[in-house]
Design a protein around this nucleic acid. Structure first.
Lengths: 172, 172
DNA sequence: ATCTATCTACCTACTGGTAGGTAAGTGGAT
DNA sequence: ATCCACTTACCTACCAGTAGGTAGATAGAT
């Protein structure tokens, strides 16, 4: 799903990967919308947990921000996958409203997480020119998602790092 | 194509929109790869021309950058469409190598255009902290593409402006 | 202990519909 | 007469989703 998008993946593909018949997947997730909603929810929880782990493992805003950038970098899986959110939004026209709402919720969660980290960086003075942590967070999310697209287009994870330079170069 | 993506749009859809039979489209563009390549090429030329128009209509780097941001903003068409490049890359796994190369070429062209504008801004001192115009250009492209995704996810063009704030707030 | 009923998780086989793509023909312009 | 743009009618492959059934685990009643 994260590598082929909503319109590009099928029950048959998934069935082959997980090793059961597609009818069995329909048993657990009657429609593609159900399946997608479950995936987004799982992704939401997984990322939320990862952010929590980062909070416990890193104490400064600087380290936390870098760890969260690394989190997105890892999500690329060497260019084979995108952030679930990115691959789904591109095919928004095919999504059910339930899935769209879940994507919005995921993004709101990530913005809140980033805003908290930027607020901390502001207090630490560990990053240049932070005037509005929430605005910074929204921009950072857009930048990260755009960096994912860049890396995929160039078929090169370095493109992700080059795009993120605009943010990482502000760290001190 | 720009609203539904490569995997989400079909010859039948397109035929209905343009008012001829889908076999007639196959006459002009035998395969979906041919059609997509032609679309990317047209998009490339159209944007190149738009950038040229901006260069003649605006003289300062500051004005040119703002006009190019507006160009991307207009490409959203009130949230109904994405930059062609964005909607295609998400379904990269379904694309022919020819199309991927054309997308790379398009991105290289846009990076070069943006780099030129950032270089001018640097000379004018009309934007804060420009140290590397090419790096700025790459980051700006990622930000613009990410802002497109944000606007689409939030179903609100304001989300585009909010993401771009990180760049526009540096103008002076 | 065993019979019975129900449930879970899976299966094969199929549906209606749509995908990209093609072969052969039509009709107007040069 | 020939070419060009387009048509109808068709193909095969695949799509999401369904019908109907089965093996095996679970649990309550006797």
């Amino acid at each position: 799903m994260r590598s082929r998008g909503f319109d590009g993946f099928s029950y048959a593909d998934l069935a082959q990967v997980v090793g059961i018949r597609k009818a069995s997947i329909h048993y657990h997730f009657p429609t593609k919308a159900d399946l997608t909603a479950a995936l987004v929810e799982r992704y939401h929880n997984a990322l939320d947990q990862e952010c929590h782990r980062i909070e416990t493992q890193h104490k400064t805003g600087r380290d936390r921000l870098q760890a969260m950038i690394q989190l997105y970098r890892d999500a690329l899986n060497d260019g084979t996958t995108l952030c679930l959110c990115v691959s789904l939004i591109s095919s928004r026209e095919s999504l059910s409203i339930g899935v769209i709402e879940k994507i919005k919720a995921f993004r709101a969660m990530m913005v809140a997480r980033f805003a908290e980290v930027f607020r901390q960086c502001q207090q630490e003075n560990s990053i240049r020119d932070v005037s509005d942590p929430v605005a910074e967070a929204r921009a950072a999310l857009a930048l990260l998602e755009g960096a994912h697209l860049s890396a995929r287009a160039e078929n090169n994870v370095d493109a992700f790092d080059r795009a993120l330079w605009i943010l990482t170069s502000r760290l001190r």
